[in-house]
């Protein structure tokens, strides 16, 4: 079995942002030379998500509004204090909780050297705690 990894850097420009990364994943799969297997896309952070959904502004807005309704920005969260190991204030509990709900990765099959997602499926890197420089890994496993 072969394993190939690609780490990508991304700069979010909003506090909440859904950044489509489908093409980056497709490119990595093609570059890997792996014909049959699976591709994982994994965020390296705790206030972001990797999400599969449909690339429609109305769907994106519903996702944003639903998450905000479930996890409002203003709420008496516990995670609002100085973090001496960072030297900065936490105050990003909503980002952590949204990340928990949405998950840090997705998996899709690789068939005949191509990512085999459904037609409506796009892959998003989702920022819940921008603006930040972020990283995610694309890992392809197979033969």
């Amino acid at each position: 079995m072969l394993i190939k990894s690609y780490t990508q850097e991304i700069a979010s420009r909003q506090e909440f942002e859904m950044i489509k990364i489908t093409d980056k994943v497709r490119e990595a799969v093609a570059d890997s030379g792996i014909k049959n297997g699976v591709v994982f896309v994994i965020s390296m952070h705790t206030t972001t998500a990797i999400m599969i959904n449909e690339n429609l502004p109305c769907v994106e807005k519903d996702i944003e509004m639903t998450l905000e309704r479930l996890i409002p920005t203003d709420y008496p969260y516990v995670h609002t204090h100085m973090l001496p190991s960072y030297g900065t204030c936490s105050g990003n509990a909503p980002g952590h909780l949204k990340s928990m709900l949405c998950g840090n990765h997705c998996v899709l099959p690789v068939t005949d050297g191509k990512m085999a997602g459904g037609k409506a499926q796009d892959i998003y890197f989702v920022e819940f705690d921008g603006l930040k420089i972020r990283k995610y890994t694309i890992q392809i496993m197979g033969e």
Binding site: A11, S85, Y86, G87, T88, I133
Partner: peptide
């Protein structure tokens, strides 16, 4: 400064923030 785990920020990001 006691900013142990924090990382550098490119200028474009500083301005965007």
């Amino acid at each position: 400064f006691g900013l142990y785990k924090s990382s550098p920020i490119p200028m474009e990001q500083v301005i965007a923030v």
